[in-house]
Amino acid sequence: MSATPISRYDGVQVSGGVQVRMTADRVRRWEFGTAPFARRGYDNADVDRFRVQVADELDLLATQIASLRAENERLNDRVELHRHGVIPSAGTAAAKAPAAKEVNLLSAAQREAEQIIAQAHDYARRVAEYARMQYESYMRAAAEEAKQEAERAVADYRSSAGPSFDDTVATREALRIFGEMMVSHMQAAARHLDDGSEQLARTMDRIAKETPGAPFAAGPAAAQAALPRHHQR
């Protein structure tokens, strides 16, 4: 066992301004002064002084050893960590490692949560796809109807105008009718969407109240923000 880590310690006996380290050897060779008046034994004051010093010295050493031991342990762990990435000798690892039963229980819970999330996402995807198809077929039907209406108007105009038939007038009329029809269809759709969005906002409010930690903390403003911009008022 080498003593190198203890390069310096503070237990010093100051005599004549020179620092002298207290060592086991010095203790052994310590010479006590002789007692006055031919009494047997050592000088009490001398002994007391020595005892106090030795006690202090031992206290100091004890704390130093404790802290060095901790330091050593820490360094050993670091070495092991660098070498293995884990502390296999910790022993606590094995004790701390949760039992397979616990682990499997947590795994099952995690799985179930994921299934619920996946189901919710799947449902949302279907709803969105359905809405997209509805929208496209609605638009197609609206355009078709508006086109027919416009063609009918042009035919009416043609039969009533007779020889004074003007191509520009017919085109203008057709476009006007087509436009008006599309606008009225869009307005109907917008009313429909307004109803839907109000219902959605109410639902989101309700969900937010029921789940305090909901990420999309709703409220009318948030519900509004969740709608396409053409629909925000």
């Binding site: 682990v103 947590l106 995690q110």
Partner: peptide
């Protein structure tokens, strides 16, 4: 998939 499932559950419990 059992493997990473077990791994993460162990990590989260410990």
């Amino acid at each position: 998939d059992q493997v990473p499932l077990y791994f993460y559950s162990t990590l989260f419990l410990a």
